[in-house]
């Protein structure tokens, strides 16, 4: 059944190629995405690795917080505080580990505590949890390969068990190379309200 969150992987709903505002409100999922100022990729948040500062990750973490804020706001009041979150971060994990290995093997680079902490995608969620008071279960969980169905199955289980949840995806915008590919961050609240909750996209320049 197209559009049914129980049968359609959330990732399908997140493959937006235009700003949500361009869609009719009745079909628009309650998702929010970060809109950059780059015309080439209008629905992205990019956090390039500089190798010198933690500021980029902080901005990525801030971007995740903003996306999660809007997605959780789309849930009914009685679900919002305790609804589970599934963060799909396969691309981020692969990139972060590759980056760590490169730093580790570079004799000119001195590893810092931040390099170790950065390996963990949960660290991108922690600020939102601390600020919002959200206390639901959290799972950084993704298919080990694209299309192995595991995440869709897990999302279905959690939705049945809790009646609502938020899924968030960090997908690389380019090949996973040594340089930061940039990440598109998108989230969707399930189930999608029948009325269609219109959420204005957060713009990249709004990120502190």
């Amino acid at each position: 059944m197209p559009g049914d969150p129980l049968t359609e992987p959330p990732s399908t709903e997140l493959q937006l190629t235009e700003p949500p505002s361009a869609q009719p409100p009745s079909t628009q999922p309650p998702s929010t995405e970060l809109q950059s100022t780059e015309p080439r990729s209008p629905l992205v948040a990019s956090a390039p690795y500089t190798g010198e500062s933690s500021a980029r990750l902080l901005s990525l973490s801030r971007a995740v917080s903003l996306v999660l804020r809007d997605a959780f706001a789309a849930l009914p009041d009685d679900l919002r505080r305790d609804a589970p979150l599934v963060l799909a971060a396969r691309d981020y994990c692969a990139w972060a580990v590759a980056r760590y290995i490169r730093c580790h093997d570079d004799p000119a680079y001195r590893l810092r505590p931040f390099d170790a902490v950065r390996l963990e995608p949960a660290e991108l969620i922690r600020p939102y949890a601390a600020e919002s008071g959200w206390r639901g279960s959290c799972y950084v969980a993704d298919d080990d390969l694209p299309g192995t169905r595991g995440r869709a199955l897990v999302t279905e289980h959690l939705l049945r068990a809790h009646g609502g949840l938020v899924t968030c995806e960090l997908r690389a915008l380019a090949d996973l190379g040594l340089d930061d590919p940039g990440f598109r961050i998108s989230a969707v609240a399930l189930p999608i309200p029948a009325t269609g909750a219109a959420i204005s996209p957060t713009r990249a320049e709004e990120i502190p």
Binding site: A89, R90, C93, L119, E120, P121, A122, S137, C138, Y139, V140, A141, D142, D143, D144, L145, T148, R149, G150, R151, L153, V154, H157, L158, R160, A161
Partner: peptide
């Protein structure tokens, strides 16, 4: 079959078991 990867640093296995429990109890 269906596989899902769970990563939560040194709590990964504990989170994975919590997720598995949710799937079974559902």
């Amino acid at each position: 079959g269906a596989r899902v990867y769970v990563t939560h640093a040194c709590a990964s296995a504990a989170f994975a078991m919590a997720l598995a429990q949710q799937c079974v109890t559902g």
